[in-house]
């Protein structure tokens, strides 16, 4: 199979949630900015960056939570020479790649129109891309690992959404101690301790990568993937 054909196949298998989630999240964020009754520059800029930091990572994570556990060709995949976890990793790359394809142009437009610079905590055009990249990788890694552990998209999706919602509502409690500050998802638009932002972003990236590796190790035990029929 040619590589392009293979990647196109994996894009189809990643599902509609992966394809539609990030653009819908971005559109909702833009609509929220347009509906903002206080159109002062920093407030609207914060909403627009919030769409990148809050909405897009959640959409990507929910798509990643559906990767494990809902493949009707799972037994066929397990019988093929390519390890199934490599296939799932490929689908995750497709999902995150599509998320980046939505987020990067949106960020470029915000930078070009000046909205990016109007939020005081923007951290520049290049490093500032960690605004959406770090929470996307961190939350998607958690979703992928939860999917590998529970093998239930619903359970993994509920866990990820709960963590996201708890961090939204209990921002003060989540940042009360160093580990909480380093793992806080919304450090750009909801504030971080001075000097913590870079460490926070790198920690989220590292935690996401570690969770993906954990999920891949778990998915290497193929008997876990086909055992559900006996339950």
């Amino acid at each position: 199979m040619r590589p392009l054909t293979l990647w196109r196949y994996e894009m189809r298998r990643a599902g509609w949630a992966a394809f539609l989630g990030p653009p819908i999240a971005l559109v909702l964020g833009i609509m929220a900015a347009l509906a903002n009754p206080q159109p002062s520059d920093p407030t609207t800029a914060r909403i627009l960056l919030g769409a990148l930091e809050m909405a897009i990572p959640l959409a990507a994570a929910v798509a990643c939570s559906s990767l494990v556990g809902r493949d009707p060709a799972r037994e066929l995949q397990l019988a093929s020479p390519t390890p199934y976890r490599v296939t799932l990793l490929r689908r995750m790359i497709v999902t995150l790649g599509w998320t980046a394809a939505v987020a990067v142009p949106a960020a470029v437009v915000l930078i070009a129109t000046g909205w990016w610079a109007r939020w005081p905590e923007n951290h520049g055009a290049f490093a500032g891309q960690l605004t959406w990249l770090a929470p996307t990788v961190g939350l998607s890694g958690l979703a992928f690992a939860a999917g590998a552990v529970f093998r239930s998209p619903g359970a993994a999706g509920a866990l990820v959404t709960s963590v996201w919602a708890i961090q939204q509502f209990f921002a003060g409690s989540a940042q009360a101690h160093l580990p909480g500050r380093l793992l806080y998802l919304f450090a750009t638009t909801r504030g971080a301790a001075p000097g913590d932002w870079t460490a926070n972003r790198l920690t989220l990236l590292g935690a996401g990568a570690a969770l993906i590796v954990f999920a891949l190790v778990l998915l290497g035990r193929s008997e876990r993937l086909i055992g559900e029929e006996d339950e």
Binding site: A17, L28, A32, G50, A51, M54, S66, G154, G157, T161
Partner: peptide, 18 residues
């Protein structure tokens, strides 16, 4: 699942940043 998460995210964000 996607719709439930989306609707709930809108509820969580009501009164917040977005």
């Amino acid at each position: 699942l996607g719709a439930a998460v989306g609707l709930w995210a809108v509820r969580v964000l009501a009164g917040g940043v977005l």
